[in-house]
Structure formats: structure tokens, C-alpha cells
Design a protein around this nucleic acid. Sequence first.
DNA 1: GCGAATGCTGCTCATATGAGCAAACATGCC
DNA 2: GGCATGTTTGCTCATATGAGCAGCATTCGC
Lengths: 315, 315
Amino acid sequence: MIESDELLSIRAAELYYEEDKTQDEIGSILRLTRWKVGRLLAQAKTNGFIRIEIVHPRARRLPIERRLREERGLKDAIVVSTAGITGEEELQARTAQAAADYLASIRPIPRTLGISWGRTLYEVSEHLKDGWSTGVNVVQINGGVSLNRRAGTAATTAVTIAQKAGGQATLLPSPAILERLETKLAIEGDRAVSAVLEMAASANAYLYSAGTADEHSVLVDSGYLTVDDVHELVRKGAVGDVVGRYIDADGNIVDPSLDARTVGLSHDRLRASDRSIAVIAGAGKHAVANAVVRSGLCTVLVTDEATAISLLDEH
Amino acid sequence: MIESDELLSIRAAELYYEEDKTQDEIGSILRLTRWKVGRLLAQAKTNGFIRIEIVHPRARRLPIERRLREERGLKDAIVVSTAGITGEEELQARTAQAAADYLASIRPIPRTLGISWGRTLYEVSEHLKDGWSTGVNVVQINGGVSLNRRAGTAATTAVTIAQKAGGQATLLPSPAILERLETKLAIEGDRAVSAVLEMAASANAYLYSAGTADEHSVLVDSGYLTVDDVHELVRKGAVGDVVGRYIDADGNIVDPSLDARTVGLSHDRLRASDRSIAVIAGAGKHAVANAVVRSGLCTVLVTDEATAISLLDEH
DNA sequence: GCGAATGCTGCTCATATGAGCAAACATGCC
DNA sequence: GGCATGTTTGCTCATATGAGCAGCATTCGC
């Protein structure tokens, strides 16, 4: 009876979902009452035999978002669907789009938005619609004067976001990491820098991404760290960086002396904000994402389905 | 408006299918009337954004079955779902199961069933339930005395099917292919063989599979043909074999002189039957399946989703 | 073998949904 | 601008579906 009922529920589901028959019609085909058919269909659903997927680049996974809010204590979560995805690039595009959508939807509109920089943030800026908000000022929250060919990406990101919202962009005129602590303290003391840092500290909302702790990190690419530096950080437990600062699985700073030479908003300030939005997607970033969420670095997370699920499994 | 409506329909679909909200509730969330929501959902379905899959080893694809009947003129078609499939083996098992189910369901119950032999048929016999029918006699329709270690598979298949139905099995005591035409004519003239062939010709229903035209063919494995023979057949246009006879894409016999040396039911007899069931599944058998269907060798086809779709595309 | 307990069945009733339609609206054409 | 045409909207009404419940059967314990 267990067996035959399961088979029946599949037959019923075929007729219901694929042939668009009513439960009544199915009843007469399978020689059952329509109530029995309804129960078989409910059973098929419960057993997980019916899989419904929304296949669209803008599709989100609301049940997963809810679980992230409830189980991981996030204020909000945006999870993009990976259904029908073709590659890592598309995943990043979808996530950036979702982050842009979310940013445009938050109320009250933040007067000042603190942002980090990197590939992800750049993509978010590209996906924002012109006029996405009215008069949002953008301020960089970590050192962004890039040393190499990528120069300008960081500035472009901030300027684009501000411009599209009809606001002003304020850049942080400082390297991300300095070689000597004295230099760092000196540059922080400079009025041109300290004013920006103060503005960053008083922003109403933050938008940032996180990097992986490997040789492909933007900090390596930009020349602030060597591959060996990163390997050493990994050995010490680093899982990735958030606004230029490397953290371990618990969200703690991995290397305090390196951190002291890093210019930008502190993680404590980020944790104190009630609107810090992290945009983290991709198979390689599960570990950082987990560290960020666990240590309360963000209140809102924009991510992909696979990362979200790993976040729920970890828990 | 085109754009924003599409996005709205996705939001509505998320709330409807993932959050189990009513159209009314969705209406108040998205500030729409419930009728608009209903239309958005219908639109999302039409646009193919909603994908519903039945994930179960016994699941079938009824819409594809219907199209096969309508567009390819089959009396009946059984298409097993490939959703959640892990490998070729599972595909074969699912198809064999479906063929067994179908065989047990046909009415009127055939008094005599003609069968071929091979891996597929053997699996079908294994999947049949004991007592699947009452008194069905089984007769082999092509030469089945195997020359190698596989000896017995052919016989076992026929005996198992008959036994489980409480009927008699009649074996065809002849090689599949003979080296000389004279021998073939002589063996056909023998009463022990001709009686079986007559019985085969008068069967009420046929169940057979098809082989690919390559070195993995059972006919090569059994020693009836060499790898070179098969290559030569392929060169002449062979796409596979049906009950030991090689056909081209149009279902025509590829090599008449080889065919004349092949013992078993003719394709003409198979085409004249109103109940000839072909069981053909697997990525390698798309071409044979198409030839079988196109040339009317079967009235009923049991196959997998991918093969079925290729059959509809060909058309 | 008998009663209790559990589960299954077919029902009533409330609710959710889809079909069809008239009015409002936008669109193109002169 | 004014009219005709096609599209979208909000509705009524018929239908499909799910919740809840009482009766029936089956199982289990003793």
C-alpha cells in the first residue's frame, strides 16, 4: 500500500502538473475520488517529488532568505537563484543586479553611503539605474588609490554610484595598506584623509564586498601584498578580507600589525552600523561569507543560492 | 512596461510558489489587484519562467508522449523522465521498469508474445512482477542461441517473462546469423525451427529492443559479426539493428545478403502487427529509435525523455 | 474475541482561482 | 484634434481546491 500509493501520487502529479487536468478528471482517470487525488498530490509535494523552479536571471529564493534572517540573525537577506546558470560570470552579474536593486529600494534613503571597492562593487555600480535615488552622497571607506593598471576602478565605482543618484562622491586619497606604521599614522593625521575617514564613520549605510584569501585577491593584484604575504595570512587562519582587513573564520583580525597599517573604516564601526550590506557571491567565498555573517559584520547579505545554503549548513 | 511587468511576474511567482501566498496576499504586498496577480502568474507560466518537474524514478513525461503519438503516428508512447538521473545505468533501469509496467497493463492480454533478446529485454524481464499476467506464452522471434559466455541470457529472458506470467516459453533453436545462405535455408526448413517461426509470426504482440551499429553491439559480442563487419555496415548507412537485422536511417535493410542469412521474424511481419512494442533508450540510440519510428517498425515506443525529444526534433 | 486506538475515507463548507465581459485606457491614423 | 482600433483593467460568476469533521475499517493489546 505504501508503494502503490507513492506510484499513484506520481501518476496523479503527471496528470495535474503536466496535463493540466483537474483533480476531478484525474479521479475518474485513476478511479479515485477527487479528495483522494488531492491527498495524493499533497503527499507528492510533501515527499519532495514535485520540484518547482523559477527560471529567470532576476529570480530570488525567498524561503532561503527567510531562513538566513531567522537562523543567522540577519536584518535582511537577498538570495539570487542559480537555476539555469551558465557560469561564474553570470552568477556575479545576477548578484550585482540584485544588490543594485536592493540598494535602490532601501528606505529611508541613506544620505551618505560608505562603500568599499573591487570587482563586485564595480559591477554593482554598473547595474544601478540612472536616477536610482535622489541625492545620495558616496564615500569610500577604505584606501583606494590603486597602484597598478586597475587604477581608477575604485574611483570610478564611487563616482558612478554617486552620479547615478545625483549625489557627490568623496574619495579616500590613501593607499589601502602602508609599509610602515608611522606612515599610516601620519597619513591618517593629514586633514585630507581624516576628514574623509570621519565622513565614512558617520555614513548612514555601508555597501561592501569581501575577497578570498588567495593569490587572486585584489590586494595582491593591486600590489599591496605579495603572494607570500597571503600564504602566510592563510597559515594564520585567514579566510578572506573585508574592506582590506583579513579575518579568520570567526571574524577576528588575523594579523594585528598588518591591520594597524591598513587605512580605512574599522570592523568595529561596521559592526555598529545597523545598515551594512555585504555583497558576497561565488563558490570560493563561502568561508568569508560565513565569517562575515557569524561575526556580525553585516546586517544585510546579498548572495547566491549555493553560498546561502552553505551558510545554513554551517550553522 | 514590458520589462517591469516581467520582473513583477517573477516577484509574484516567488511569493506564490515559494512562499505559498494567495494571489490576494501577493496583491496587497505588491500593491496590485488580485486579478493582475493572476495574470502575471499566467504570464510567467507562458513565458516558461516556471519550471515544474516531477522527480521520481517512475515519473513519465505525458506531454512528450502525446506529441509522439500525434506527430510521429505512434499508437502509444511511454517516455520516462530523466530528472535527477545519475547515469546511463539508471536510465536503462527506469526504461525497463516502464516497459515492464506497460507490458503488464496492455488489454486485451496477448495470448502469445514474441520477444527478441539482449540486455534491454533481459532487464525488462527482471523488472516484471511475479504474476504480472495470467498465462502469456512467450516465443523468441530471432535466433538466440548465443555463442559465448553470455549464453543463456536470451533463453533466461524468455523463460523469466513466461514464468512470471504463468505461461510457456518457446525458444528459437537457431543461431542469429548463419555463415552460408544454404545453411540458413536448411535450418529454416527444419520442423523444430519452422514451427517456432510460425508461432512467432502469429504472436498477438511483440516486444523488442534495438542495438546500435557499433563495436559494442550484442551481435559482435556474441560472435555473429566482427568489428569490421559492423564498420562495413555503418559505411553502408546502418544506424542499428532490430531483431538482428541492420537498418539505415529510413528503416531499410542495409545489406540484403546478410539479412538473407539472418534467422528470425521479418521486419515486414513486425510492421504488420498492430502491437509491436519497441524499448529503446540511451544517448547512443537516438538514430536507431528514429529509424524504427519513421519506418513504422513499432506501434508503441518505450523510451527516455532525451531520446523522445530528439525524435520530435528530427521530425 | 473484544474494545480501544489509529488511520483512512468521503463528505460539507469556506476559500482560491480562472473564464469571460464591459468599461477605461492607450494607440495609431487621418 | 477626433475617431477607430486594440489593449489593459476591474469586475461577476462558475469552478477548483483545501480545511475540517464524522463515520468506517484496520490494527493492536490484552
